[in-house]
C-alpha cells in the first residue's frame, strides 16, 4: 500500500490544470476527492507520474439553482450536496442518495465530479445523473462541450471524457414529481448490491412520466427507458410495476462478486426497484 513516486500539482484554475494535463499527456491525471484514485495508486494498479489535485480550484465549486435549472460544480463535495437546503428543496433525491454514499468522513472530501467522472459502476451518482437526465460539461484544450449523462458511460472506467479534458460541472432541470433513491449495501462504506433511482410524475392519478436508473448491476449505470415506459399511463399498480421490473431485468447484466451470485443480484434489483417505485409514487 505504498504508491510509487509521483509529482503533485495543485493548480488554482481550470486553465492551469488543463495546461499541466497538456504538458504531461498520458502521464498526468486529475484528482477530485481521491477516494478511488489514491487507493489504486497505493495498490500500484494506477501509475500516475503527475497527479493534478483540483481542490484549490474555486471555480469548480458551488451549487446554483436558477430558473428551474440546477448547476453543480464538479468539486462540490457530497457533504455540501447534503447540507444545501436549496438543492434539497429543488431535487430532494440528491440529498437522499448522497446520504447513502460511504460515511461522513468520506463525504467531506468526496466530490460529485469525481463520483461521476471516474466511471466506476459502483458509484451512486452516475445512475442518479442518468435518472435526472443530467448534462456534463467537459473542458479541454479546444474549449468546452456538453455530454448527456445517458451517453457518457461506455464501460467500467471508460467514459466519453478525453484524457485532456476535465469534467467541470453538472446541470439538470429540477425534477418534477416524486423521487426516491433506494440502495441495498452490506455495510456502511460499501458499494450497492443494487440501487435504484426513480422519478415519477403523477397527473390525474396516472404516471405521466417515469425515469428509472440502476446502479452497480452492469459495467455501466443502467438507464432503463423500457422500465419507465412500462409505468407511463398506468396507475402504478402491481401489474405495471411488475412490467417495469421485468423490463429493468432485461437491461441489467450483473456479475458475481462477494456480494453474491447473479441470481441474487437480479432478485434484489427487482425488490429495490419495487421499493423505489413505491416510495417515489407515494411522494408524487
Amino acid at each position: 500500500m505504498i504508491p510509487s513516486e509521483f509529482e503533485y500539482h495543485r493548480p488554482g484554475s481550470i486553465a492551469a490544470a488543463l495546461a499541466v494535463l497538456e504538458e504531461h499527456g498520458d502521464d498526468a491525471r486529475v484528482m477530485a476527492g481521491g477516494h478511488s484514485l489514491i487507493p489504486m495508486m497505493k495498490l500500484r494498479m494506477a501509475d500516475v507520474p503527475h497527479l493534478i489535485d483540483l481542490q484549490a480550484i474555486t471555480e469548480l465549486k458551488g451549487i446554483a439553482v436558477e430558473g428551474g435549472t440546477i448547476t453543480i460544480g464538479a468539486m462540490t463535495t457530497q457533504h455540501e450536496l447534503i447540507t444545501s437546503d436549496e438543492l434539497a428543496a429543488a431535487a430532494p433525491i440528491m440529498r437522499e442518495a448522497a446520504l447513502l454514499i460511504a460515511d461522513p468522513q468520506v463525504r467531506y472530501v468526496g466530490t460529485i465530479g469525481g463520483n461521476v467522472a471516474n466511471g466506476d459502476p459502483g458509484n451512486d451518482m452516475p445512475g442518479l445523473m442518468q435518472c435526472l437526465d443530467a448534462t456534463f460539461t467537459l473542458q479541454g484544450p479546444d474549449g468546452t462541450r456538453e455530454v448527456q449523462a445517458r451517453d457518457f458511460y461506455e464501460a467500467a472506467y471508460m467514459t466519453d471524457r478525453e484524457d485532456d479534458e476535465i469534467l467541470t460541472k453538472i446541470s439538470f432541470a429540477a425534477p418534477k414529481g416524486g423521487q426516491a433513491y433506494e440502495k441495498q449495501k452490506r455495510k456502511i462504506g460499501d458499494y450497492a448490491t443494487a440501487a435504484a433511482a426513480v422519478i415519477l410524475e403523477k397527473v390525474d392519478g396516472k404516471v405521466a412520466s417515469a425515469s428509472i436508473a440502476m446502479t452497480n448491476l452492469s459495467d455501466t449505470p443502467v438507464f432503463s427507458a423500457d422500465a419507465g415506459a412500462a409505468l407511463v399511463g398506468s396507475d402504478c399498480g402491481a401489474d405495471a410495476v411488475s412490467d417495469a421490473v421485468s423490463a429493468m431485468l432485461g437491461d441489467i447484466d450483473p456479475t458475481e462478486d462477494n456480494r453474491g451470485p447473479v441470481e441474487f443480484k437480479k432478485h434484489v434489483a427487482g425488490v429495490i426497484l419495487r421499493r423505489a417505485i413505491e416510495r417515489a409514487w407515494s411522494r408524487a
Binding site: 452490506r186 453474491g260 451470485p261 441474487f264
Partner: peptide, 10 residues
C-alpha cells in the same frame, strides 16, 4: 450475509 440468507429463503 445477505445473499446466503436470501439463498436459504430461496
Amino acid at each position: 450475509d445477505h445473499w446466503r440468507i436470501w439463498k436459504t429463503a430461496n
